[in-house]
């Protein structure tokens, strides 16, 4: 083969300079490879939680307690405020868990006592996250004087144990479910603000946020579109743990007598009321205590499985490249 006949690698200038159609220029476009579609957060949740033993166990634990709390009042055998026998009576056909301090049915009171607890846990955490999250986002994004001032206030609140802080609030404002719920919400705001601030700081330093700043996007729009979607996964994992924590705090405050007033059925209150007869009839104390523990442990397991599944999905997708 002589040099004149040598085939040439076709590398003459691109389409623009020789007027070739766009379609040809498109050939430069690389990568035909089909990669698996990304797992959205919702599907990641389902796969991560249902796909692991930890996740499944946690989910069952949470569901059992939630079902008892939600549907318990519909299936209770007795009115929870009616006396059915002698105090601390043994388990029997009419009172499966025996009777409690005032001779009311332990099972009926247990079935009635979770609904409010769960509702308060859900509501306080949600409200606390709305306020604390917004505050944290602004602190982490704005930096400067606002962040310094807000951080100082947050630090002061964080230096006081939450239960004491909540007790102080309740002592100042009086007892009652609304006041306790308010206190449980308030004490959660500083740690949430602190956490969201640290997530935001990391994302605010990235170049996609800078690109948005450079094209003149409004601050709210940047936080909503660029920052929030990228911190939602650690936040979702945190919400679960924080919810179980606020349920425990509410139960603790009920135990101490700040929540619902005595005739009402409430898990925290039950533990408090019946602890005197612990050696005679422990069930009215143990069952609500175990329910709270199972809920807390289950929530933690689910959060954990979720967090791990997200981490695994992201690692997996990076490794595949």
């Amino acid at each position: 083969m002589t040099s004149g006949e040598m085939p040439e690698l076709d590398l003459a200038p691109g389409a623009a300079s020789v007027g070739a159609p766009r379609a040809e220029a498109l050939e430069i476009a690389p990568e035909e490879t089909q990669r698996p579609a990304r797992l959205p957060a919702a599907r990641g949740f389902v796969n991560g939680v249902l796909g692991t033993t930890t996740g499944r166990v946690g989910l069952v634990m949470v569901l059992v307690v939630v079902l008892i709390a939600v549907f318990g009042p519909l299936v209770r055998p007795h009115d929870p405020s009616v006396v059915v026998g002698a105090p601390y009576g043994p388990s029997s056909g009419t009172a499966l868990l025996g009777t409690e301090a005032l001779g009311r049915d332990g099972l009926s009171r247990f079935l009635s006592g979770g609904r409010l607890l769960l509702l308060v846990g859900l509501a306080t955490t949600t409200v606390a996250y709305l306020i604390g999250g917004a505050l944290g986002l602004m602190m982490g994004y704005a930096r400067g004087v606002f962040d310094a001032a807000a951080s100082t206030v947050v630090d002061i609140f964080l230096s006081v144990p939450p239960i004491i802080l909540a007790l102080l609030l309740v002592a100042g404002l009086g007892s009652g479910v609304e006041i306790v719920a308010l206190a449980v919400t308030a004490v959660q705001i500083p740690p949430i603000a602190r956490l969201v601030r640290s997530f935001t700081l990391a994302v605010a330093a990235t170049e996609y946020v800078e690109a948005a700043v450079a094209r003149g996007e409004r601050q709210g729009s940047i936080l909503w579109h660029e920052v929030l979607p990228n911190i939602r996964i650690p936040i979702l994992a945190d919400i679960g743990i924080r919810m179980s924590w606020s349920i425990m705090l509410f139960a603790s405050l009920s135990f101490l007598g700040f929540g619902q007033s005595p005739p009402a059925a409430d898990w925290g209150l039950m533990i408090s009321e019946n602890r005197g007869g612990l050696l005679i009839q422990p069930l009215p104390v143990l069952v609500p205590a175990v329910a709270i523990a199972v809920l807390a442990i289950g929530t933690n397991l689910v959060s954990d499985a979720f967090g791990r599944s997200i981490g695994r999905t992201q690692e997996g997708s990076h490794a595949s490249r």
Binding site: T206, E207, Y208, E210, A211, V213, A214, R215, G216, H225, E226, P229, N230, R232
Partner: peptide, 28 residues
């Protein structure tokens, strides 16, 4: 600062960064 510029001015000047891993919103 870009925030103080007129819309037409921010629109006219656009920036491409060094590391595309960090310059694209991973959640979008």
């Amino acid at each position: 600062r870009a925030a103080d510029r007129a819309r037409a001015q921010t629109q006219a000047i656009q920036l491409v960064f060094q590391n595309p891993d960090r310059s694209l919103n991973p959640s979008s």
